[in-house]
């Protein structure tokens, strides 16, 4: 846009020289105090640059006379937060698990802390809401527990884990690979019997043959009517929950060549207060006993 400074006929003042759709603007001066505010902000920034980290140098930068850094600030903030949390965490560490659940203050705190710890540590395998994942990661929100769903049971499971090699007190159970012990037909019969535990059998003769084998081989861990034996970590076979699938083919595959999940011990990785908060949180997901 060509700049043509001219005198305005009405006021006798000069225009800015710009024209928008035939409208010209008078070149009205800015008040002086406005200018002084600009100078004040420049002076302010100079002071600021001395007080705080500012200019880069060849090796490093000006660190400011206050010694402030973002990193030291975050460390201080974290320390302040930890100091604020300490008394409540101490109470949670000292309280019995059931006390935490019955004290509204403790419960609220444990739920909030447990939710965060769960998302950080557990959700990868057990899902964001404890819903589990296909392929052997159990649902923690249902009412079927392999190792028990009381607060104490859950506490032990989280602390020591399952079938891991790190913790000698880990919950341990092993299902033999019956593919090397039983014939294909026998495995098929046992699977048919397992189906009959939930009333889904379609071949009574096969199920009856399987029942004999089940009584010899399976009862110790899975119970007489397939109700499961928690002390052994034997899952219930008479309910609607199947860790590796409930179709006959999937049951037969699990008998022949069982898959067994591993859970690491969290004792040592997480502090006791966090583990107790996690215990209460998992207990409230929907299946706590």
């Amino acid at each position: 846009m060509p700049t043509k400074i001219e005198k305005d006929a009405v006021t006798g003042k000069e225009t800015t020289g710009h024209e928008w759709d035939g409208i010209k603007e008078l070149n009205t001066p800015l008040p002086k105090w406005w200018l002084y505010i600009l100078y004040a902000t420049i002076a302010w920034s100079a002071v600021w640059a001395v007080l705080y980290p500012s200019f880069p140098g060849l090796s490093g930068h000006w660190r400011g006379t206050t010694g402030w850094t973002q990193r030291s600030a975050i460390v201080q903030q974290m320390q302040a937060v930890e100091a604020e949390r300490a008394p409540m965490l101490e109470r949670i560490r000292a309280a019995a698990l059931d006390e935490i659940r019955r004290d509204p203050d403790l419960l609220q705190y444990a739920m909030a802390g447990g939710r965060v710890a769960f998302a950080d540590n557990c959700a990868a395998c057990h899902g964001a809401g404890g819903e589990g994942r296909p392929g052997g990661f159990p649902n923690l929100a249902d009412d079927s527990w392999i190792w028990g769903g009381t607060l104490e049971d859950i506490h032990v499971t989280i602390r020591h884990g399952i079938r891991n090699t790190q913790d000698p007190e880990a919950r341990m159970s092993l299902m033999p690979a019956y593919g090397q012990i039983l014939s294909r037909q026998e495995i098929d019969d046992v699977a048919e019997h397992v189906l009959s535990l939930t009333g889904r059998s379609t071949d009574a003769a096969s199920a009856a043959r399987g029942a004999t084998i089940y009584t010899e081989q399976c009862v110790a861990c899975h119970g007489e009517r397939g109700e499961g034996v928690r002390a052994q970590g034997g899952p219930a076979l008479n309910d609607a929950i199947w860790l590796y699938g409930g179709a006959k083919r999937e049951i037969a595959a699990q008998i022949a060549n069982p898959r067994m999940g591993v859970m690491p011990p969290w004792q040592g990785r997480l502090d006791e207060a966090t583990i107790r908060m996690l215990t209460v949180y998992v207990h409230t997901l929907g299946g706590g006993e």
Binding site: V10, G12, E14, T28, K32
Partner: peptide, 21 residues
Amino acid sequence: VDRPAKAAEAPMSPAQGSLYA
């Protein structure tokens, strides 16, 4: 500032002088 005064009465003609009033 900015008032439609008669040219002869305009108290100052800023663009000829300082940019700041």
